[in-house]
Each structure stands twice: as C-alpha cells, then as structure tokens.
Design a protein around this nucleic acid. Structure first.
Lengths: 205, 205
DNA sequence: TGATAATTTCGACTGCAGTCGAGACTTAAA
DNA sequence: TTTAAGTCTCGACTGCAGTCGAAATTATCA
C-alpha cells in the first residue's frame, strides 16, 4: 500500500475514533466538527474530505454497529423457534444496542424514518440489510404454517418494522420506560401475529 | 385591549403569515429567520421574542393545521361505518393535508416521532388530541363486535398509529409513491384488523 | 535526482440559528 | 404633563456547519 493510502486509512480511523469517543461522551449536538478535528489531530477541512456532513459521520458508525448487530443475530438465531420469539429477539437485540447510546440511537432512527432530502438514499441500503435478515426467517415460519401464505413477506416485514418504530418512538418520547419496552413490543407483536397467522380452529402444533 | 397587546397580536400574526408564505414557497430549510423577520417587517430578535426556536414556528402552524383537520374529521365522520373505513378516512385526511406541503409534513412527523430533547414535551399534547379522536370510534367498533374486547383501546390506537408512521416514512423516503399510499395503508390496516377483530367462523354482518 | 502533476490538508471565510443588552416605546402614578 | 418602571424591538455578536483555494505532501516520469 502506498504511503498516501496508508495515511488516508489512518486519518479516517482517527476521525472515526474521535467521533465515537466525543459523541458518546458529550453527545452529538454538543460536539463541534472543529473539536472533533482537533481530537483527531487534523484540520476542520480534512474532516470534510472524508465525510460530507456531520450526520454522515454518525452513519458511518451506525453502519458498523448494525453490521455487528446483524452478525451477532445471525449467530444466535434459532430458526426453529416460534416466529414471535425470533422477531422479538431481533428487535430487542437491536434495541439493547441502541440503549447503550441513546443520543446516537435517536438520531439514527430519526434519520432512517424521516431523513433529510440530501441523504435519503443512504438508508435504502440499511433497510435492505434488515429485510434480507428477516426474509428467510419469515419464509420458514410461513412454511411451518405460523404465518398466512396469502400475505407478501414484504408486507409482513413492514408490519413488524412499523410497530418497532412505534415502540422506539414511545421510548424516546418517554411514554414507555426502558424496562417496559420488551413487554410492550411483545404485546403489540402478539397483536399483529394473531392477524398474521392463519385463522383456524385446528391449532395443531 | 391595550395598545401593547394589540401590537403584539399583530406582530405575531405578521410573523406567522410570513412564515407560512416563505416556508411553503421556499421550504423550511431555505428560509432564514432574518429573511422571515424582514418579510414580517420586524427585527430578527423580535421573532425570537415570540418563538423560541425556528421549529417552534413550524409547530405553531402545525397545531393550527391539525386543529383544522380534526374539526373537519369530527364533522365528516360516520360513526357507524366499518372500522376500517373510518380509520382509513382519518389517516388519509391527515395525509392529504400533509401532502400539500411535503417539506412541512416531513419535519412535523420527524419531530413528533423522534423529537429533540428540548421540545419533547410539546408533542404529548398533540398525541392526546389524536387519541381522544380515535377512542370513541374504537369504543363503538368494539361494542359492535368489530374489535376484540380483550385488547386495551390504547394498544389498538398505537397499533394503527405505528402503521401510519411506517407508511408515511415509506412515502417520505420514496419507497411508496403518492398514488399508492392509500392502498398501502388499507392493505396494512386490513392485516392489522384481521388480528384485532374477533376470530370466529360466524362472520355474520 | 529533479521537475511537474495529482492529491491532500488546512484554516480563514460564508451563512445561518440563536443571544443579549442598549435603546425605543408604553403604562401607571403623581 | 412628567417621570419612573415595565415591556418590546432591534441588529451587532457568538458559535457552529460547511466551503474554498492556497500551500504542503506524495506520486510520476524524464
């Protein structure tokens, strides 16, 4: 690797590291780019050579975090557990990660759900990753007869996602305390499922 | 009314009017407070005498708009229509209003769902108004047997609200085009209802 | 190795949200 | 009508996100 590329690598990492530290310690809004630049040992303009906007720095870390979460999920997943259990596990794992840095999670959710015009594109990718995780799980559940066959999987993922956003929103606005998030999510997913699973009196399994 | 109060009234209205015009014409982000102040014929500082932040100006108009929407809804409501129809009417009316000023609606939704720490309180009121509108409708539907009796009304309102947020988000991020919002909403509400209404083979009405 | 081209770095600069205190206007009381 | 207290108005000022072009660093090739 050339000197140039090596330096770039290092600089970018230094900026990322500084960002993670400062955002976590002082919050996103309370961290100025100038401050961040100084902490990373570079000039302000340099930061903008690596990231186009302040939120983009957040996104970079978000993507990394989400990757971690997804990897973890894929590992610990139990593809034969009831669908409710699996879906709950997925979202609660995500929630627990977000919990560790509330500030961070709020901005991430906000940008994902109602992004600025400029960076609306970024998030389509993230969503893709989410759908790709959920699809096989739902497919299996459908095969097992836990979910109706006459509903598109995409609509089911959306349904769950919508309810997750709702609960997150309630949490961020203080309507649901942290310790009740799990039960609230379970309750509303259960509600959703009663409609998603086939109506039949022959509840075999 | 004293001269002073009269003046204040007028000034506030002038700011509001200028805001509505400029935000609608040039968008929220592209309108500076200085510009707004000039259009209203006052100094910059004066604007901040009436509103604490730029978003608060938006909120003032939002509240007004929502009031209009709610009044309209209460009038045109048909309390005996099927629950799906009623709920769809409510949200589509809201959506249509938002459509008229997309910019505006996006920021409103965003602030409502994932607000800044500072103005998290504001929105609890708005939500209350929403719940008070939905409650009697759902209660009636429950009495008619269209909704299960063993689910708290609050959870039902939340369920619908979550799905509405999801659809709005999909619209804002361009995943659902305007002309499909109505059918997407209907589809997902139908999904939700199949679980919300009692399971029974005696589908009388 | 030296000279030129390509890339990267930097901080002074622009534009805007929000603050603040000096001064203008309004009210109340004599 | 005068004056003192209370209230409102204003724009200069602060702080920060993001831009830009001049200077420094690295690559390329004779």
């Amino acid at each position: 690797m050339s000197i140039r590329e090596e330096k770039k690598q290092k600089t970018k990492q230094a900026i990322m590291d500084a960002a993670i530290t400062l955002f976590s310690t002082n919050g996103f809004e309370n961290t100025s780019i100038e401050e961040l630049a100084k902490a990373a040992g570079v000039g302000k303009g340099t930061v903008y050579g690596y990231f186009q906007t302040k939120t983009e720095i957040l996104h970079a870390f978000c993507e990394y975090e989400l990757d971690q979460i997804h990897k973890e999920l894929v590992k610990q997943a139990n593809p034969n557990a009831p669908i409710l259990e699996q879906v709950l596990t997925i979202y609660m794992t995500e929630f627990n990660h977000v919990t560790r840095n509330k500030e961070f999670g709020r901005i991430f959710m906000r940008q994902t759900v109602f992004p600025d015009e400029n960076d609306a594109q970024d998030h389509l990718e993230i969503d893709d990753k989410y759908f790709q995780l959920l699809f096989p799980i739902l497919k299996k559940a459908q095969d097992r007869g836990e979910l109706r066959k006459n509903i598109e999987l995409l609509h089911i993922t959306r349904h769950f996602y919508g309810l997750y956003i709702l609960i997150m929103s309630s949490w961020y606005t203080g309507r649901i305390p942290t310790e009740e998030v799990s039960s609230a999510l379970e309750l509303i997913f259960r509600q959703a499922l009663e409609g998603l699973q086939p109506h039949s009196d022959s509840k075999s399994k």
